[in-house]
Deep mutational scan, measured.
Amino acid sequence: RGFLEKAAVKKMAKAIMADPNKADEVYKKWADKGYTLTQMSNFLKSKTAGKYDRVYNGYVIHLD
């Protein structure tokens, strides 16, 4: 289950990176699912340092 969630989160993160207008909708879905910042950090780990920082930081702001 965790692997599928991670894959889904990364897919949506890539969608945000391609079209930032989708961010609020995606952040709301993640918040509704109760994803914590720790979970998001783990889901968005990448071999490329900083690749998903913008998405993660946007989610931090959304939760605030």
Rank of each mutant, 00 (worst) to 15 (best):
R1Y: 06
R1T: 13
R1E: 12
G2F: 12
G2K: 13
G2L: 13
F3I: 11
F3D: 13
L4N: 13
L4P: 10
E5S: 05
E5Y: 05
A7L: 15
A8L: 13
V9L: 04
K11Y: 07
K11S: 09
K11Q: 13
K11R: 14
K11C: 14
M12N: 06
M12D: 15
M12E: 14
K14V: 06
K14A: 12
A15P: 01
I16T: 01
I16M: 05
M17A: 04
M17E: 05
A18Y: 08
A18F: 08
A18S: 12
A18N: 11
D19S: 06
N21M: 13
K22D: 04
K22T: 09
K22E: 07
D24V: 09
D24E: 11
D24F: 11
E25C: 15
V26I: 14
V26C: 07
V26W: 04
Y27K: 00
Y27D: 00
K28M: 08
K28L: 06
K29M: 15
A31V: 08
D32A: 13
D32P: 00
K33P: 01
K33H: 10
G34E: 03
Y35W: 05
T36R: 02
L37D: 04
L37K: 11
Q39L: 06
Q39V: 07
M40Y: 00
M40E: 00
S41G: 10
S41T: 09
S41L: 10
N42T: 08
N42D: 15
N42R: 12
N42E: 14
F43Y: 07
L44V: 01
K45S: 14
S46C: 12
K47D: 15
A49F: 10
A49S: 11
G50C: 08
G50I: 04
Y52N: 02
Y52L: 03
Y52Q: 02
V55H: 02
V55Y: 03
Y56I: 14
N57T: 09
G58L: 03
G58V: 01
G58Q: 04
G58C: 05
Y59E: 01
Y59T: 01
V60E: 09
I61R: 15
I61H: 13
H62N: 02
L63M: 06
L63R: 03
D64C: 15
